[in-house]
Design a protein around this nucleic acid. Structure first.
Lengths: 330, 330
DNA sequence: TTGTACGCGTTATCAA
DNA sequence: TTGATAACGCGTACAA
């Protein structure tokens, strides 16, 4: 219709700079008139690119993942890419299978959560080399690109908050650290910091639980059953913290003054529930992860490791322990 | 390697029944040995199918959407399909754009939430005819296939629960009903039922708010500012109900006895918060929607409209109004 | 049941 | 800058 070859049309659409202004206008007019849409399958086949990126997350059932995915999606779409979402349910084997499936579908890039993946997963990535980035972790000295924060350091902020309030008997309800480096990093951070700055006579009780409300309830139950229960409990994430909060409430414990609880992640409801927690900029991590990939896909060499700012959100669920509390009105 | 033509390999992989057992075995051995993976782009191009289905939801930031998507994904994957997720942010225009984008990518089917879509969206679906199903609504007489429940009827259950408790002054914090037939259906159900069974002298106050915690807070604030505030508030979904609950708490209202609140959806936290709500089987709806599409894609003619069971989850946030309450201890 | 050969709609190479 | 043409890797009539 524009009186030009298909090659020129292809160029006009993909590399507008390589075609003269006059032709470009004629082609665009024809494209509009015919409602022409390039066939994506043919484009994938010929160009060996799919304009597709996959994000693989443990779950989409919390606002942190959701915000992150929304941000990734927004950034990707702006660049003409489509997002594929994979859900592992925290199972490394599934993560591997999903990786294979996405690679077979010809994704141009991948975004993971955390950096601990099965050797088979990393092997697949090497056999079928596409750029990828680990989101939610910061390991500048590690071999893989990442966008996130240091979970050990984050845990240290949490511990310090409790120490400053006067807590000495601190326990932890962690999420399962097997195959979850973020969970492991948080545990390590708590242990290290307490070993350095805590009461030498206190052996930190740590229980691992699934990241559910019931996991949090059960975890708190175990800690409270100890001969000397902790006066403050650090939770591996906000969901566990909610569970701990509800369990404490149901046991008639006065929040904060009798038991301090602190979480990790800062979900939407945490502020409403008065949960002290470590705030994580999920959307920003998502956006930056997407931008890393886009830069790589454009042939660039972006920064290997990008760090995002975290901060402690101190709220009502943490307070000085009873012995120190000023509110000792009769 | 198997000593057969590419056509036979293609058949052995796609229609195993049409190839002899001996050859099939040889081909499968070769496939395993070579780690052969069909090129999806070429397959899409030649077969004019993408083995991809898209689900378009308003948001993934709540457990109802998330459960639904997980179920869709699980069912689809079992059938060899890949799921694409689109997020509209409750904007019909965005829904249309996403539809066009997915259609251009050659999706084989679509799953929508609700049945009210832009004319342009339905037009696109006609220009590029692929099967689709509206999830979360039940309209057996409507023109489009659906899987879900009748939102008016659901609202009736909610109203009846409150009436049975003795409430007569009932108000509602609804989500924005513009371009949201589920929200509109719930409002209509409340109005109708109250018109039929409620106090004739009571004009039901209804405020529409965005589906956020703050929306719920603001909505309750408006209702409580009325000359005669309601004794019970129906919320268009659980998020709004959480907001109402928190607002009531912050205003020092005793839950239930001074103000009953009831929600819609039954998110994970609702049980913990003691929120009465209408329970929706999100995962089942997702699975059934996926199955409808798979049946259509397999050439079948599944049931036009499928209904799922809903039930009222009565919990602590609803109780008889104060005047009738037995707990009138001094 | 199996093989031959063409077509799917682009992109990319090369020559003009 | 533009055009002709050869891949790209599979599905599928049709013939054997």
């Amino acid at each position: 219709m524009a009186g030009v070859s298909t090659a020129t049309v292809s160029r006009a659409l993909s590399l507008p700079g390589k075609v003269s202004a006059g032709l470009r206008a004629r082609i665009q007019a024809a494209v509009a008139a015919l409602q022409y849409q390039p066939n994506i399958a043919a484009r994938m086949l010929a160009a060996r690119r799919s304009w597709t990126v996959a994000a693989i997350v443990p779950t989409i059932r919390n606002n942190v993942s959701a915000s992150c995915l929304e941000a990734i999606q927004a950034r990707l779409e702006a660049a003409g890419y489509t997002l594929l979402i994979g859900m592992t349910g925290y199972e490394p084997e599934r993560e591997y299978q999903i990786t294979e499936a996405f690679l077979a579908r010809g994704v141009d890039g991948l975004i993971y959560t955390g950096a601990s993946h099965l050797p088979a997963t990393y092997a697949a990535l090497e056999r079928h080399p596409v750029p990828f980035v680990n989101q939610g972790v910061f390991e500048p000295d590690g071999p893989y690109p990442c966008v996130g924060f240091d979970n050990r350091e984050a845990a240290r902020l949490v511990v310090q908050h409790l120490l400053e309030l006067g807590h000495r008997r601190i326990g932890m309800v962690a999420s399962i650290q097997l195959a979850n480096d973020r969970a492991a990093g948080r545990i390590a951070g708590v242990v290290e910091t307490l070993a350095a700055c805590g009461d030498p006579g206190w052996r930190v009780p740590i229980v691992e639980q699934c990241s559910t409300i019931d996991g949090g309830r059960a975890g708190l139950g175990l800690l409270l059953a100890l001969p000397t229960p902790p006066s403050a409990v650090i939770c591996g994430n906000d969901i566990l913290a909610y569970g701990a909060l509800f369990e404490a409430r149901d046991r008639g414990l006065r929040a904060a003054s009798e038991l301090s609880v602190i979480g990790f992640g800062d979900l939407d409801l945490s502020e409403q529930l008065g949960l002290s927690t470590l705030h994580v900029p999920a959307a920003e991590m998502g956006r930056l992860a997407a931008e890393y990939l886009l830069a790589r896909l454009a042939g660039g060499a972006p920064q290997h490791a990008t760090r995002v700012e975290i901060r402690l959100a101190a709220r009502a669920s943490t307070a000085p322990p009873r012995a120190l509390a000023v509110d000792s009105a009769p």
